[in-house]
Simulated scan of single mutants.
Amino acid sequence: MTAAAITPLPRPTPRATRRRLGTVAAEIGVAVGICLVGYYYAADWFRTQEAALAVRVLRWLGFDDVSAVIPQSILIYRGPDDVLQGIVTTSCSSILTVVGLTALTAVVLRSRGLHAVGGLLVALVAVVAANCVRLVLSTLAGYAWGGPAMTLFHDWVGTIWALASTLAGFLLMVCLTLPAAERAEQDVAGRHTARRPDAWARPGLGYRVAEVEQRAAERRRHRFSPTAFFYRRVLPRRVAARLAARREAGRIDYRIGHLTSAQRVATVQRLAGEGLGVHTASLLAVATYDTDIDVLDALADAVAARQWEPVVSHRVASLRLWARGWLLARRQFSAGNSSTTLIEAPRPAPPAPGRLPGRGDRATPRSFARAVPSVPAVPTRADLVRPHRQDPR
């Protein structure tokens, strides 16, 4: 009879999960704070300026029977005894869209830096201009057909107009903030699309899909790029080369392989924190080709901390399965190196699998489950470090 003193394996502390939850809570707090502060301090100013801007546009169009003498209102003189007052309320103003897009940029798109600021500014100008057109059309409806027509236009056409302008402003901001398709590190299928040397043609480490390269070349020939013109025609050659080298040094393929172990750990955590479906190819490349234990531990912990993220592709599922296997193996290794004392017992050989009729001499497995030994065995230290592999047949 054998006896063994086996210490139960400690459950890992979800520190990364708590940190991520804290980060998400902080980001939500920042977004809510931006919306509240912006609405409290800028709502009245926006209403006043948008009413004045609508009156100015109407006068440019030749309609002089309007006035913005009353703040946050548009006066419409239809006759000696017929004066309409269109009040620009908060729902008529673009302040809600402005603070919403600002909060979204500050929380979600802040990593894009100046690109995010430029996209936000263009989107805000477009939203304010669209809302000004809405106020002008509402005023013209009241000027032509009276108060009921202006109310009807505001309640129906104006509401749909506001929703459409908000969506258009958001899409415009995202389009200007995110990089172009030919400059993206990977496509929607998880394949790398970065322009890298052909000697790097290993899956996940910088190869470029041929059809993507061809489409990018055609787009570059038929499209004018202000950034390319500024780099090639305005900046000195040395300055442009230095800026290009600095930009390329920050791309995914260049900032993993050549870094030190600690730097690779930080980079992997940051890439995984942006989403497993965003940098899937690079994370799979780290899991496949990196041999540093600390880096692989950091990747497994980062993947395990994002259990809430949906599985959008088989590559994300592969990352999840790899991280689970790695963490289980590491826990078994830690248990094998502990001070637990085990009384080893001989492990009996698994029973020989039977043969199915009608298949000749070839043994066909009934399932892929591991064969259960006839006598329970006590795991040894070697089994904890490196699990015993049995024939699935």
Rank of each mutant, 00 (worst) to 15 (best):
R11T: 15
R11I: 14
P12R: 14
P14K: 01
R18V: 11
L21C: 02
E27H: 05
I28V: 14
V32I: 14
G38T: 04
Y40H: 09
A51D: 03
A54F: 07
R59F: 07
W60M: 13
F63V: 13
D64E: 14
V66E: 08
A68N: 13
V69S: 15
I70L: 14
I76A: 09
V83N: 06
G86T: 00
S91I: 05
V98E: 14
V99D: 09
L109Q: 00
R110G: 01
S111H: 12
G113N: 05
G119W: 00
V127L: 12
V128R: 10
V128L: 14
V133T: 10
G142F: 08
G146V: 05
G147Y: 01
T151Y: 11
V157K: 00
W161H: 12
L163A: 15
C175D: 12
A180F: 08
E182M: 03
Q186I: 02
D187G: 11
A189G: 03
R196V: 06
V209K: 02
R215Q: 15
H222T: 15
H222G: 12
Y231I: 01
R232K: 06
L243A: 02
A249W: 01
R255P: 00
A266F: 00
G273L: 07
G273F: 07
H279Q: 09
L283N: 09
L283K: 04
A287C: 06
D290M: 08
D294E: 15
D294M: 06
A300T: 08
D301R: 13
A302R: 09
W308R: 11
H314Y: 02
L319R: 08
A323I: 09
A323Y: 02
G325M: 05
Q332D: 12
F333Y: 11
A335G: 07
S339W: 06
T340S: 15
E344Q: 09
P348V: 13
L356K: 08
P357G: 10
G358D: 11
G358M: 10
D361K: 10
P365W: 02
F368V: 07
R381H: 05
